[in-house]
Computed example of a mutant assay.
Amino acid sequence: MANNKTLVPQAKAGLNKFKMEAAKEVGVDLKEGYNGDLTSRQNGSVGGQMTKKMVEQYEKNL
């Protein structure tokens, strides 16, 4: 079972901002609150963009 609990509560606002930026970059109309009207593909593209950007940042810092 998935646990969506934020391990560092102070990071929640930053993660939400990051998610909104990633959504904008891939053209997904993500809004604050409920987004159940989005398709799995749209949601997956946001998560994929976030992961891509995190990996790029990690590689820069190596």
Score class of each variant (00 low, 15 high):
A2K: 15
M1V: 06
S45K: 12
V46D: 04
G36F: 03
L7Y: 05
E56N: 11
K52Y: 06
G33C: 03
T6R: 07
A13G: 08
K31D: 04
K53Q: 13
G36T: 02
Q49C: 10
Q57H: 14
M50T: 01
V55F: 11
K52L: 05
G48N: 10
N4F: 08
L38I: 04
N35L: 04
Q42W: 07
N61F: 04
T39A: 07
G14F: 10
G33M: 03
K12L: 10
V55I: 15
T39L: 09
N35D: 03
G36R: 05
L62V: 01
N4H: 01
A13F: 06
Q10Y: 02
D29S: 07
N61Y: 09
D29L: 09
G27H: 03
V55W: 06
Q42D: 13
M20W: 06
Q57S: 11
K53F: 00
D37Q: 14
S40K: 09
S45H: 05
K19Q: 08
Q10L: 03
T6L: 00
A13I: 09
K52M: 04
Q49I: 00
V55L: 15
G27E: 12
T51H: 07
N35T: 06
A23N: 05
N35H: 09
K24R: 12
K12F: 06
G48W: 01
N43S: 05
Q49D: 04
V26R: 02
K19R: 12
L30T: 04
S40H: 05
L62C: 00
V26I: 09
Y58A: 15
K60Y: 05
E25F: 03
A11I: 00
S45A: 11
G44N: 06
G44D: 06
Y34T: 13
N61R: 09
K52R: 09
V28C: 11
E21F: 00
M20L: 14
E32H: 07
M50H: 01
E21S: 06
